Computed example of a mutant assay.
Amino acid sequence: MRLIGFAGWSGAGKTTLLARLIPVLVQRGHRVSTVKHAHHNFDVDKPGKDSHTHRTVGASEVLISSANRWALMHELRGTPEPDLPELLAHLSPVDLVLVEGFKRDHHPKIEIYRAEVGKTLLYTEDPYIVGVASDGPVPDCPLPVIDLDNVAALADFVDQHAAPIDSIVWRGPLDQSEG
């Protein structure tokens, strides 16, 4: 399995890009999975459903299965949030894992940048960013800059820069002082 991340500030268009990129990668014959970092209080379950009731009354894990899909929900119940390598261990084998978020972790990433968001570029503080996907020029950028609207070029870049998961050195999150 190979992995590449997509990092950027909120509003830069990470999810929109992945929604356009995944079908191209699948059409090229890749089996693709995604890992998305969410904020604290997200929920995939609905109040009133049996699975929600099982979780809220104390079940540590609830697995739901049907003829179309299955889903496993795991409640942390105060234990630390798992790191990215631990989460990846739960995935079934695929060709490519696309990671949205986890922007402080040590894996190859493409920065999604839109000047209109008004935030600084991340690549200047993150040596794991291997390219920048932008809707406009990125002056003085030493990294490859790919047009956000050129999904085929982005798919090529993913193919070239996704790293085998077992080759990634998972040292833990970058702290603010690392370059």
Rank of each mutant, 00 (worst) to 15 (best):
E61W: 01
V62D: 08
V62T: 12
A67E: 15
W70F: 15
M73P: 01
M73T: 13
H74V: 14
E75S: 14
L76M: 11
R77A: 12
G78R: 00
G78E: 12
T79S: 15
T79G: 13
P80T: 10
P80E: 10
P80D: 01
P82L: 04
D83S: 12
P85G: 01
E86V: 14
L88M: 03
L88Q: 00
A89N: 09
H90P: 04
L91R: 00
L91K: 00
S92K: 13
P93Q: 13
V97M: 03
V99Y: 00
F102G: 05
K103G: 02
H106P: 09
P108Q: 08
E111S: 01
A115G: 07
E116Y: 04
E116I: 12
T120M: 12
L122P: 00
L122Y: 00
Y123H: 12
T124I: 08
D126Y: 02
P127D: 11
Y128T: 12
G131T: 05
G131P: 12
V132C: 06
V132S: 08
S134G: 07
S134R: 06
D135K: 05
G136V: 06
G136W: 10
P137C: 09
V138A: 10
V138N: 08
P139F: 11
D140Q: 10
P142L: 09
I146V: 14
